[in-house]
Protein backbone atom coordinates (compact mmCIF):
# COMPACT_ATOMS: atom_id res chain seq x y z
CA UNK A 1 0.00 0.00 0.00
CA UNK A 2 2.75 2.38 0.99
CA UNK A 3 4.58 1.54 -2.17
CA UNK A 4 1.56 2.33 -4.35
CA UNK A 5 1.05 5.68 -2.61
CA UNK A 6 4.66 6.64 -3.05
CA UNK A 7 4.53 5.65 -6.68
CA UNK A 8 1.36 7.61 -7.40
CA UNK A 9 2.75 10.65 -5.57
CA UNK A 10 5.85 10.42 -7.66
CA UNK A 11 3.86 10.13 -10.85
CA UNK A 12 1.75 13.18 -9.91
CA UNK A 13 4.91 15.19 -9.36
CA UNK A 14 6.32 13.88 -12.61
CA UNK A 15 3.14 14.82 -14.45
CA UNK A 16 3.24 18.29 -13.02
CA UNK A 17 6.83 18.79 -14.03
CA UNK A 18 6.13 17.44 -17.52
CA UNK A 19 3.21 19.83 -17.89
CA UNK A 20 5.32 22.78 -16.73
CA UNK A 21 8.08 21.86 -19.12
CA UNK A 22 5.67 21.43 -22.00
CA UNK A 23 4.22 24.85 -21.18
CA UNK A 24 7.68 26.44 -21.16
CA UNK A 25 8.39 24.79 -24.48
CA UNK A 26 5.17 26.10 -26.01
CA UNK A 27 5.82 29.63 -24.77
CA UNK A 28 9.40 29.61 -26.02
CA UNK A 29 8.28 28.32 -29.41
CA UNK A 30 5.64 31.03 -29.66
CA UNK A 31 8.09 33.78 -28.77
CA UNK A 32 10.71 32.56 -31.23
CA UNK A 33 8.06 32.22 -33.94
CA UNK A 34 6.88 35.76 -33.28
CA UNK A 35 10.43 37.11 -33.51
CA UNK A 36 11.03 35.32 -36.77
CA UNK A 37 7.68 36.42 -38.17
CA UNK A 38 8.34 40.03 -37.20
CA UNK A 39 11.16 40.04 -39.76
CA UNK A 40 8.70 39.13 -42.50
CA UNK A 41 6.24 41.77 -41.26
CA UNK A 42 8.90 44.46 -41.15
CA UNK A 43 10.12 43.63 -44.64
CA UNK A 44 6.58 43.53 -46.03
CA UNK A 45 5.63 46.81 -44.36
CA UNK A 46 8.80 48.45 -45.62
CA UNK A 47 8.39 47.25 -49.20
CA UNK A 48 4.69 48.14 -49.33
CA UNK A 49 5.36 51.63 -47.99
CA UNK A 50 8.15 52.16 -50.51
CA UNK A 51 5.92 50.98 -53.33
CA UNK A 52 3.10 53.23 -52.10
CA UNK A 53 5.38 56.26 -51.96
CA UNK A 54 7.43 55.67 -55.07
CA UNK A 55 4.96 53.78 -57.23
CA UNK A 56 3.50 56.81 -58.95
CA UNK A 57 6.94 58.14 -59.80
CA UNK A 58 7.84 55.08 -61.86
CA UNK A 59 7.04 56.38 -65.31
CA UNK A 60 9.16 55.75 -68.42
CA UNK A 61 10.22 59.41 -68.44
CA UNK A 62 11.46 59.03 -64.85
CA UNK A 63 13.30 55.74 -65.35
CA UNK A 64 14.86 56.62 -68.70
CA UNK A 65 14.90 60.43 -68.58
CA UNK A 66 17.84 62.63 -67.63
CA UNK A 67 17.88 64.60 -64.38
CA UNK A 68 16.98 68.32 -64.30
CA UNK A 69 18.83 70.93 -62.23
CA UNK A 70 16.12 73.48 -61.49
CA UNK A 71 12.78 72.38 -62.95
CA UNK A 72 10.38 69.53 -62.18
CA UNK A 73 10.14 66.32 -64.24
CA UNK A 74 13.75 65.08 -64.08
CA UNK A 75 14.55 61.40 -64.52
CA UNK A 76 17.23 59.03 -63.22
CA UNK A 77 18.24 57.10 -66.37
CA UNK A 78 21.94 58.05 -66.25
CA UNK A 79 22.03 57.39 -62.48
CA UNK A 80 20.76 53.85 -62.97
CA UNK A 81 23.34 53.40 -65.71
CA UNK A 82 26.10 54.77 -63.47
CA UNK A 83 25.12 52.50 -60.59
CA UNK A 84 25.64 49.47 -62.81
CA UNK A 85 28.71 50.94 -64.45
CA UNK A 86 30.46 51.60 -61.14
CA UNK A 87 29.33 48.22 -59.83
CA UNK A 88 30.85 46.57 -62.88
CA UNK A 89 34.14 48.48 -62.58
CA UNK A 90 34.36 47.80 -58.85
CA UNK A 91 33.76 44.08 -59.21
CA UNK A 92 36.25 44.02 -62.08
CA UNK A 93 38.96 45.16 -59.64
CA UNK A 94 37.68 43.62 -56.42
CA UNK A 95 36.90 40.04 -57.42
CA UNK A 96 40.28 39.04 -58.91
CA UNK A 97 42.33 40.69 -56.16
CA UNK A 98 40.14 39.49 -53.29
CA UNK A 99 39.85 35.93 -54.59
CA UNK A 100 43.56 35.69 -55.36
CA UNK A 101 44.49 37.07 -51.93
CA UNK A 102 41.97 34.77 -50.22
CA UNK A 103 43.31 31.74 -52.09
CA UNK A 104 46.87 32.63 -51.17
CA UNK A 105 46.12 33.13 -47.49
CA UNK A 106 43.92 30.07 -47.17
CA UNK A 107 45.69 27.58 -49.43
CA UNK A 108 49.32 28.61 -49.70
CA UNK A 109 50.45 30.78 -46.80
CA UNK A 110 51.98 28.89 -43.93
CA UNK A 111 51.27 30.40 -40.53
CA UNK A 112 53.78 33.20 -40.08
CA UNK A 113 54.50 36.88 -40.20
CA UNK A 114 53.44 37.57 -43.77
CA UNK A 115 50.11 35.83 -43.38
CA UNK A 116 49.45 37.64 -40.12
CA UNK A 117 50.29 41.02 -41.65
CA UNK A 118 47.93 40.40 -44.59
CA UNK A 119 45.18 39.30 -42.22
CA UNK A 120 45.73 42.27 -39.95
CA UNK A 121 45.76 44.69 -42.88
CA UNK A 122 42.54 43.26 -44.26
CA UNK A 123 40.83 43.47 -40.90
CA UNK A 124 41.99 47.05 -40.38
CA UNK A 125 40.86 48.00 -43.87
CA UNK A 126 37.47 46.44 -43.16
CA UNK A 127 36.89 48.72 -40.16
CA UNK A 128 37.57 51.99 -42.02
CA UNK A 129 34.27 53.93 -42.24
CA UNK A 130 33.18 54.47 -45.81
CA UNK A 131 33.13 58.25 -45.42
CA UNK A 132 36.78 58.16 -44.38
CA UNK A 133 37.57 55.98 -47.36
CA UNK A 134 35.73 58.54 -49.50
CA UNK A 135 37.93 61.29 -48.09
CA UNK A 136 40.99 59.20 -48.89
CA UNK A 137 39.70 58.74 -52.46
CA UNK A 138 39.16 62.50 -52.71
CA UNK A 139 42.73 63.23 -51.62
CA UNK A 140 44.34 60.57 -53.79
CA UNK A 141 42.28 60.22 -56.96
CA UNK A 142 40.67 63.65 -57.21
CA UNK A 143 43.47 65.91 -55.93
CA UNK A 144 46.74 63.98 -56.10
CA UNK A 145 46.12 62.25 -59.45
CA UNK A 146 44.15 65.32 -60.65
CA UNK A 147 41.42 63.07 -62.09
CA UNK A 148 38.61 65.30 -60.73
CA UNK A 149 35.38 63.38 -60.03
CA UNK A 150 35.46 60.17 -62.03
CA UNK A 151 33.71 56.81 -62.24
CA UNK A 152 37.15 55.16 -62.03
CA UNK A 153 38.07 57.04 -58.86
CA UNK A 154 34.76 56.02 -57.32
CA UNK A 155 35.20 52.40 -58.35
CA UNK A 156 38.75 52.25 -56.96
CA UNK A 157 37.58 53.73 -53.66
CA UNK A 158 34.81 51.16 -53.47
CA UNK A 159 37.37 48.46 -54.28
CA UNK A 160 39.41 49.48 -51.22
CA UNK A 161 36.22 49.47 -49.19
CA UNK A 162 35.02 46.02 -50.26
CA UNK A 163 38.27 44.15 -50.79
CA UNK A 164 38.66 42.92 -47.20
CA UNK A 165 35.06 41.69 -46.97
CA UNK A 166 35.31 39.70 -50.19
CA UNK A 167 38.70 38.34 -49.21
CA UNK A 168 37.20 37.08 -45.97
CA UNK A 169 34.26 35.59 -47.84
CA UNK A 170 36.72 33.82 -50.15
CA UNK A 171 38.66 32.47 -47.19
CA UNK A 172 35.50 31.19 -45.55
CA UNK A 173 34.26 29.66 -48.80
CA UNK A 174 37.59 27.85 -49.23
CA UNK A 175 37.68 26.78 -45.60
CA UNK A 176 34.27 25.17 -46.07
CA UNK A 177 35.71 22.81 -48.71
CA UNK A 178 36.65 19.62 -46.83
CA UNK A 179 40.35 18.75 -46.69
CA UNK A 180 39.49 15.23 -47.82
CA UNK A 181 38.82 16.63 -51.30
CA UNK A 182 42.23 18.29 -51.37
CA UNK A 183 43.81 15.01 -50.26
CA UNK A 184 41.90 13.13 -52.94
CA UNK A 185 43.18 15.44 -55.64
CA UNK A 186 46.76 15.38 -54.37
CA UNK A 187 46.65 11.58 -54.08
CA UNK A 188 45.63 11.48 -57.75
CA UNK A 189 48.93 13.19 -58.51
CA UNK A 190 47.37 16.62 -58.89
CA UNK A 191 49.53 19.65 -58.28
CA UNK A 192 48.45 22.25 -55.76
CA UNK A 193 47.34 24.58 -58.53
CA UNK A 194 45.27 21.87 -60.25
CA UNK A 195 43.72 20.98 -56.92
CA UNK A 196 42.72 24.59 -56.31
CA UNK A 197 41.43 25.38 -59.79
CA UNK A 198 39.67 22.08 -60.48
CA UNK A 199 38.40 20.97 -57.08
CA UNK A 200 38.57 23.65 -54.40
CA UNK A 201 37.29 26.72 -56.27
CA UNK A 202 34.48 24.87 -58.12
CA UNK A 203 33.32 23.45 -54.79
CA UNK A 204 33.33 26.93 -53.28
CA UNK A 205 31.64 28.67 -56.21
CA UNK A 206 28.20 28.83 -54.57
CA UNK A 207 29.45 30.58 -51.45
CA UNK A 208 31.68 32.84 -53.50
CA UNK A 209 28.73 33.95 -55.63
CA UNK A 210 26.71 34.70 -52.50
CA UNK A 211 29.61 36.78 -51.22
CA UNK A 212 29.81 38.75 -54.44
CA UNK A 213 26.06 39.42 -54.27
CA UNK A 214 26.35 40.82 -50.76
CA UNK A 215 29.21 43.05 -51.84
CA UNK A 216 27.21 44.16 -54.88
CA UNK A 217 24.30 45.17 -52.66
CA UNK A 218 26.65 47.33 -50.62
CA UNK A 219 28.10 48.92 -53.75
CA UNK A 220 24.62 49.76 -55.05
CA UNK A 221 23.72 51.45 -51.80
CA UNK A 222 27.04 53.20 -51.11
CA UNK A 223 26.91 56.99 -50.96
CA UNK A 224 29.50 58.48 -48.59
CA UNK A 225 32.51 57.07 -50.43
CA UNK A 226 31.14 58.10 -53.83
CA UNK A 227 30.07 61.68 -53.06
CA UNK A 228 33.76 62.63 -52.72
CA UNK A 229 35.09 60.56 -55.58
CA UNK A 230 32.55 59.98 -58.36
CA UNK A 231 30.78 63.26 -57.85
CA UNK A 232 27.22 64.55 -57.91
CA UNK A 233 26.69 65.00 -61.61
CA UNK A 234 26.43 63.18 -64.89
CA UNK A 235 28.01 64.40 -68.14
CA UNK A 236 25.59 66.91 -69.66
CA UNK A 237 26.27 66.12 -73.32
CA UNK A 238 26.68 62.37 -73.10
CA UNK A 239 24.99 61.00 -69.97
CA UNK A 240 25.63 57.38 -70.99
CA UNK A 241 29.35 57.85 -71.54
CA UNK A 242 31.47 54.68 -71.41
CA UNK A 243 34.58 56.67 -70.54
CA UNK A 244 35.50 55.95 -66.90
CA UNK A 245 37.26 59.31 -66.53
CA UNK A 246 34.12 61.41 -66.07
CA UNK A 247 31.76 62.22 -63.19
CA UNK A 248 29.30 59.43 -62.45
CA UNK A 249 26.56 60.11 -59.95
CA UNK A 250 24.89 56.84 -58.90
CA UNK A 251 21.27 56.38 -57.94
CA UNK A 252 22.00 56.16 -54.22
CA UNK A 253 24.05 59.35 -54.38
CA UNK A 254 21.30 61.02 -56.41
CA UNK A 255 18.81 60.09 -53.71
CA UNK A 256 20.94 61.80 -51.10
CA UNK A 257 21.68 64.74 -53.36
CA UNK A 258 18.07 65.56 -54.31
CA UNK A 259 17.00 65.52 -50.69
CA UNK A 260 19.85 67.59 -49.30
CA UNK A 261 21.18 69.93 -52.00
CA UNK A 262 18.86 70.04 -54.97
CA UNK A 263 16.52 72.94 -55.68
CA UNK A 264 14.10 71.10 -57.99
CA UNK A 265 10.45 71.45 -56.87
CA UNK A 266 9.62 67.69 -57.12
CA UNK A 267 12.24 66.51 -54.61
CA UNK A 268 9.92 64.05 -52.90
CA UNK A 269 8.78 62.45 -56.14
CA UNK A 270 12.38 61.94 -57.31
CA UNK A 271 13.54 60.78 -53.90
CA UNK A 272 10.76 58.25 -53.43
CA UNK A 273 11.04 57.03 -57.01
CA UNK A 274 14.81 56.66 -56.75
CA UNK A 275 14.49 54.70 -53.52
CA UNK A 276 12.03 52.30 -55.11
CA UNK A 277 14.17 51.85 -58.22
CA UNK A 278 17.20 51.18 -56.03
CA UNK A 279 15.24 48.57 -54.11
CA UNK A 280 14.05 46.86 -57.28
CA UNK A 281 17.56 46.88 -58.76
CA UNK A 282 19.04 45.23 -55.68
CA UNK A 283 16.25 42.67 -55.73
CA UNK A 284 16.74 41.83 -59.40
CA UNK A 285 20.46 41.56 -58.88
CA UNK A 286 20.00 39.27 -55.90
CA UNK A 287 17.69 36.92 -57.74
CA UNK A 288 19.83 36.89 -60.87
CA UNK A 289 22.98 36.19 -58.89
CA UNK A 290 21.29 33.40 -56.97
CA UNK A 291 20.16 31.76 -60.21
CA UNK A 292 23.65 32.19 -61.62
CA UNK A 293 25.21 30.70 -58.49
CA UNK A 294 22.94 27.67 -58.70
CA UNK A 295 23.70 27.23 -62.40
CA UNK A 296 27.43 27.43 -61.77
CA UNK A 297 27.24 24.99 -58.88
CA UNK A 298 25.25 22.58 -61.01
CA UNK A 299 27.64 22.90 -63.89
CA UNK A 300 30.73 22.33 -61.75
CA UNK A 301 29.37 19.70 -59.42
CA UNK A 302 26.64 17.99 -61.45
CA UNK A 303 24.17 18.64 -58.69
CA UNK A 304 21.73 21.39 -57.78
CA UNK A 305 23.04 23.50 -54.88
Amino acid sequence: MAITTARSARSVAANRSVRARKMADAIATAILWAMASSIIVMLAAFVLYMVYLGGQALTPSFIFGVPKETTAGGGVGPEIYNSFYILFLTLLFTVPIAVAAGVYIQEYARPGTFRNVVQFSAESLATVPSVVMGLFGLLVFVYLFKWKFTALGGALTLTLLNLPALMRVTQEALASVPDTLREASMALAGTKWQTITRVVLPSAIGRLTTGVVLIAGRIFGETAALIFTAGLSVPFNNPYDLNPMRPAETLAVHLWYTHSESIVPDVDRIGNGSALVLLIMVLIFNVAARVLGRQLTKRFTGRAS
Binding site: T180, P202, F300, T301, G302
Partner: peptide, 10 residues
Protein backbone atom coordinates in the same frame (compact mmCIF):
# COMPACT_ATOMS: atom_id res chain seq x y z
CA UNK B 1 40.94 6.84 -48.07
CA UNK B 2 39.03 5.77 -45.01
CA UNK B 3 35.90 7.73 -45.84
CA UNK B 4 34.72 7.82 -49.45
CA UNK B 5 35.73 11.26 -50.73
CA UNK B 6 34.37 11.64 -54.26
CA UNK B 7 34.60 15.10 -55.75
CA UNK B 8 31.30 17.01 -55.92
CA UNK B 9 31.31 16.38 -59.67
CA UNK B 10 29.63 13.90 -61.97
Amino acid sequence: FQRPNPFPKT
